[in-house]
Design a protein around this nucleic acid. Sequence first.
DNA 1: GATACCAACTTGGGATACCAAGCCGGTATT
DNA 2: AATACCGGCTTGGTATCCCAAGTTGGTATC
Lengths: 221, 221
Amino acid sequence: MSQMQNVERQLREMILGLEIGPGERLTERWIESRFGASRTPVRAALLRLETEGLIGRDGRGWTVAPINLAELGQIAVYREAVEVAAVRLTAALEDRGGIEVIAAMLDSCDAETPREEWHRVGMDFHIELARLSGNEFLLRAVRDAMTRLSRARWLEVRDEKALGRAWAEHHAILVAVKAGHADEAARLLSAHIAGSRGRLVTSLHDDRRGLRARGFAVVAA
Amino acid sequence: MSQMQNVERQLREMILGLEIGPGERLTERWIESRFGASRTPVRAALLRLETEGLIGRDGRGWTVAPINLAELGQIAVYREAVEVAAVRLTAALEDRGGIEVIAAMLDSCDAETPREEWHRVGMDFHIELARLSGNEFLLRAVRDAMTRLSRARWLEVRDEKALGRAWAEHHAILVAVKAGHADEAARLLSAHIAGSRGRLVTSLHDDRRGLRARGFAVVAA
DNA sequence: GATACCAACTTGGGATACCAAGCCGGTATT
DNA sequence: AATACCGGCTTGGTATCCCAAGTTGGTATC
């Protein structure tokens, strides 16, 4: 694999994995030495990550995007629009065979599953559901939204009850889609996203002091 | 302004203005000499334009994105999802003062207005309407969709009657939004987008022979 | 002690040199 | 004449160098 994609992938994982904290400064020279690449692939990676919203410019210089509570709310509205559209499309398709695969993915998580896996599957559920619609743009939009939400979801204080509720909602959505009940699927999905947004923003808002203590920049709503 | 943004802007305008045809090959060296910049800003511009979908990689090398009829249909579905969501948000806002500005923008076009201006205003209508929602992500999505549609709309064979109909629909949507009638605005906007998609795809499909004769790559649906 | 000023360093933007891979044309062989 | 092979050229990928601007730390002056 080329250095370019390598740097981009590794840097993205460090940011999404909070190994580099929200709000932290990045210098091209540091990345260069950290990954053993030269500045050209480093700059290519930075440009890409900028369009993903994971990093931004801080005057002269680069900064890891802070956790922005107002932005999280806006993303939820955006998600709802595109995910509901995707699920309505899917419910109207003849071939909805991919649903079983998604259900199996959900069921692969149990009490022994590590937190990371729950986190990843919780995002992939929405991405794969959007993929079934066959619309590349809706898929891209959902993937982009989930990427931007990823760090916040990682920081969210989630209890097992909330996680179980989320999984039940996921399953209910799949059942409705499989049955071709577009309106019900849309309603369930909207409620799921709205609930998710509420819990997410509330959790981070309540804990923003703790987050700042960890050196994470948090922009209030 | 920095060379980087300069090259990006000029190259984007050349592509959107069809000065460089869909499907045409691009070499970094040609861009370099054409704009008097070195390869560093050229590559930055190419990376950005790639994420906008205006150019793509062709194995080793860059290519201006072809006109893709299947993609146009998918974009229409995507547009409808985000634009309807935006207009529903706007209709529910207290402050809908920006509507008059948009209406004035529409009214600035008359029989003497050059085609370019109609083209630009026809896109800006949708972008500015989305901006009123206050949601950055919906705005970005609409802007992105309109950018990807721009060349196709430019190639579309539009008669004055169709243009007049589109303007009337634009005005009707504004009236509904201003009155706070979210459902009606959503219905009108959906119909407008669906009709627009139909005319666009039909027009390009019928004329694809002529487009290919002009050296434009056209991917059939 | 406070402050104004200056030098050295850091940093991103840009330019250029080099490399490996692939494409293309020509040539030699059958 | 057809084809297989080979060498040069083009191209994107990478590394490195230079530059202007901004920051910082120290020092001299009041």
